Simulated assay, not measured.
Amino acid sequence: MKIAFYGSSLLSCYWNGAATYYRGLIRALAALGHEVTFFEPDVFDRQKNRDIEEPDWCRVVVYQPNAGDLRRVTSEAAHADIVVKASGVGFEDDQLVEQLLASASPDALKIFWDVDAPATLADMALSDTHPLRRALPRFDMVLTYGGGDPVVTAYRALGARQCVPIYNALDPETHHPAPPQAQFDADLGFLGNRLPDREARVETFFLAPAAALPGQRFLLGGSGWADKPMTPNIHYLGHVSTRDHNAFNCTPKAVLNISRADMAKTGFSPATRVFEAAGAGACLITDHWEGIDLFLKPGEEVLVARDGQDVVDLLADLSREKASEIGKRALKRVLADHTYDNRARLADQLFRDWREGTGPGLGSRMEAVA
């Protein structure tokens, strides 16, 4: 089927955490025979910070942030069997929704694909007249990259006909074991940009444990932390290129995942970082959130910390040998159960069920995904 996919960016990860998700899923959908065109606006300097060029498995259309170009690219939706509007595109999102719904063929499958459900739902809750909230019943289905039953229930209450999580996953071609690099040597590494809704949790789960363990080396990567007070045993790298992520994950004894506060509260929201680390065979320590056991087995395939003291205790008891074994088990699990090939097969089945008139068969059954 021909898919017109309107999202933030496929070509750049620059301030765009959804890029990994888009790439893995769309590549896998293309392998199943779908013909995908991805439309992305030239905003936030992403085109100046591309980390891939247009791939052979997806046509990419970059449009300028003006009304004329928006009309031009939304008119192409008329030729698609499936029209996807992703959340957080970054230019006139509300207008994009209306133009796509107007341009799409009456026979096309119209999908709202939410790559940040906690934020989107919180925004829609602010007003009964929110543009997306009003448009939601006109979409045939909502797909999300996380959230589980709480998100499904919330979307159904707002009028979504069908809502199914298509979770983050691993793209083995992109994230895999790599040789360690001396510059990334540490006891614990954390990679993440400084964001207001995650900063307090970074203080709790990373900065405080570093202060409590002065004899251990901590590694911090990501933009925005330069003026943040931190102890001398934290080595700050700044922005880490995507080409170095595998080495960053493979080199430290363990790496840390810290969820945004709203995602941790919602649960069932594994970040791409979880699968990137596991796919590299890293020993992952993650903050606690409901549903982690659907993806990795705590204590065997992942270590789970409920607070900063848990991080301290886990590191004090973690040898390189034990960390290596946890990483190997995590890699085996994600390769078996959590690749984008797995996720694309579920999406493909949803598409086919809809076309054959047998949906919404999967509904909110999370066990179909995890």
Rank of each mutant, 00 (worst) to 15 (best):
D287C: 08
W57Q: 08
F44I: 09
F268S: 14
Y21K: 13
L191M: 11
V43R: 03
C283W: 12
A212N: 14
S223E: 15
A80Q: 04
E173N: 02
Q47H: 04
D42T: 04
T286H: 02
A200D: 00
G221M: 15
P41N: 04
G221Q: 13
A370E: 02
F112S: 01
K297V: 10
L195S: 13
A344D: 03
R133D: 06
A200T: 04
I292C: 06
Y236T: 06
F295N: 03
L32P: 14
E300W: 04
A280N: 07
A210H: 01
L136T: 14
F275L: 11
W113K: 12
D197I: 08
A119P: 05
K328W: 01
L346R: 01
A200C: 00
L207M: 11
A212R: 15
E325K: 05
R320P: 07
D56M: 03
L219E: 14
A102D: 10
G361L: 04
R46H: 04
F351R: 00
D317C: 07
L143M: 08
L294H: 12
A247M: 00
A135R: 12
C13Y: 02
V311A: 11
K85F: 05
G359K: 13
G192W: 05
E301G: 06
E203M: 11
S319R: 07
R260H: 12
L101A: 15
A278P: 08
A4W: 01
L220Y: 07
D244Q: 14
P41V: 01
R320I: 07
E40Q: 12
D313R: 05
L331H: 13
V152C: 09
Y14Q: 12
I326P: 10
T231L: 01
H34E: 06
Q64M: 09
I26P: 00
